[in-house]
Each structure stands twice: as C-alpha cells, then as structure tokens.
Design a protein around this nucleic acid. Structure first.
Length: 254
DNA sequence: TGGGTGACGACGC
DNA sequence: AGCGTCGCCACCC
C-alpha cells in the first residue's frame, strides 16, 4: 500500500539556506500575504518580518520597494521561495491566533522595542489605551510618545498596534486608517462603536460580578446595559465598590 | 541648538 | 458638552 497523497518533494533546508544567502548579499525579500484588510506586501530579513504594507496603498511593487529602501536603507526583492519566517508570517496574517512571528527590530530605538513588546502582549479581542502602556513603561514615557511610536510601526498586524486605543474615542490615527482599525478590532470580537458609546457616557471602566474591566475587554461594552453590568467613571468609584481588577484586560498599569 | 509637531491627556471655561 | 490651552516627551529639521 502506498500513500494516497503524492509524495511531496522533501523540502531541503533550502528555504532557510536562501535566507542566509540573501542576508549575506544584503538583500531583503518580499512576498504578498493576505489579511482581513486585503492583500499586503510582506517584507522580511534573516532577523524577522520587517514590513507589512497594504498593496492597495502602495500600488505597484516598485513603489513598495522604494518605500522600503527609503525607510530602512536596504534593498528588497521579490522572493522566489518562502522560508520559515515568511510562512509563519503569512499564517499569522491570515489568522491572528496563529503562532507569533519574529520581527526585525534592527532599526528600532529602545523606546520602540519597549512599546512593541507591550503591544505584542495584547491578545486578540482586547485593546489597551496609550495611557496605560505609557504608565507601564515608567516615568518619562507619555501617551504621546507611545502614539508616536505606533505611527511608525512598519509591521502592523504582527505588532498589533490596532489594539492600542485612545481615552477619548476607541479608534483614531491607525497607520492603515481608522476604518481599518475598526474592521480589525471588530474581526477580533471587540465592537469599537460599543466602546465609543461607553466612552461618550463617561465610563472608563465597566463593572460586572465583583470585577472591573476596561471597556475594551472583549465584548463587555456590548453588554453595558444588561443586568449585572454598570459603567464606572473613575478609579475612586471602583475602589468605593471594592472591585477586583480583571486579569485579562488588566485595567490598572501592570 | 531650538523650535515645531504629533494616534495624547488633563483642566478650565 | 464641547472647545481651547497647556504640559508632556520623542523626533525632525
């Protein structure tokens, strides 16, 4: 009895061999991936993914390559074959629950590394305000610095900066546009308009069953008016009610 | 070096 | 309630 499946050519260590080869020549490579927002150029080096850009925004591949060179000082060429990094990245783009992917932080500043590390901890279905991330990074880091870093994120989706939101409204300023951010969050089970409704009512936290959450904790904002849920306007209100902080959305700075 | 600017947030009217 | 102002910090000339 032989295999029903045609024998697949054994993959030589080739893909990763070419990675080393291209790294030696000093060329990064790109392919096209697809995500909720549509097709993206996916660029990578031997260190990890270095670019994710909407093809719709860049048009021709030449334009993407120019943008890449301008930004990194490195040349990028179309990939003939995919290596481990590229395959993992394509999987992650298609499905945010797939395994994490190495990201090329070669050009990142210390602040960028810190911010990106925090952002990568935010799971799908959740979002955290700039302000909380800034506080977690300690004195000297402001919400504005955090936002500044996110604007420059060359690897959206893989560093999920769409999960970082503002205090005064859920979505705003996302690299791929506010609509894209809403779409991404919605696809992950978080309803940005429900969050906005909570914010408009002055609620910074939502109480349920002895716990308190951020309005961006999963789908909690949708249930705000359901029995058992209540909006809270300040930490003082939270304390007065003796609530415990939700461990999933972590409404207090780490 | 210094001044302008930004996905920010807090306060005051 | 909305708007202007101001402190904040990082980055770009």
């Amino acid at each position: 009895m032989f295999d029903a499946q045609p024998q697949q050519a054994p993959r030589p260590p080739g893909a990763d061999f070419t990675t080393a080869l291209f790294a030696r020549i000093g060329l990064d490579r790109y392919t096209v991936g697809s995500c909720v927002l549509g097709a993206v150029y996916l660029g990578w080096s031997a260190r990890g993914v270095s670019a994710v850009r909407l093809t719709a925004a860049h048009g021709a591949a030449d334009e993407f390559a120019d943008w890449y060179h301008e930004r990194t000082g490195r040349r990028i060429v179309p990939a003939v074959e995919l290596d481990t990094i590229a395959r993992a990245a394509q999987a992650k783009l298609a499905d945010s629950s797939a395994a994490d992917v190495p990201v090329d932080l070669d050009l990142a500043t210390p602040l960028e590394r810190d911010v990106f590390a925090r952002v990568r901890e935010i799971r799908a279905g959740y979002a955290r305000p700039c302000e909380l991330i800034a506080r977690e990074l300690g004195a000297g880091c402001t919400p504005q610095s955090v936002a500044d870093v996110l604007t420059n994120n060359a690897v959206p989706l893989l560093i999920p900066c769409h999960r970082v939101v503002r205090e005064d409204r859920c979505c705003g300023g996302y690299v791929f546009g506010d609509d894209a951010q809403q779409q991404l969050l919605a696809a992950e089970g978080l309803d940005p308009s429900a969050v906005d409704r909570a914010i408009e009512r002055g609620y910074r936290y939502i109480e349920n069953d002895g716990w308190f959450c951020l309005p961006t904790c999963g789908s909690i904002a949708v249930h705000l008016d359901a029995p058992g849920y209540a909006g809270l306007r300040s930490l003082d209100e939270v304390r007065a009610r003796g609530l415990r902080a939700c461990g999933s959305c972590r409404p207090l700075a780490a």
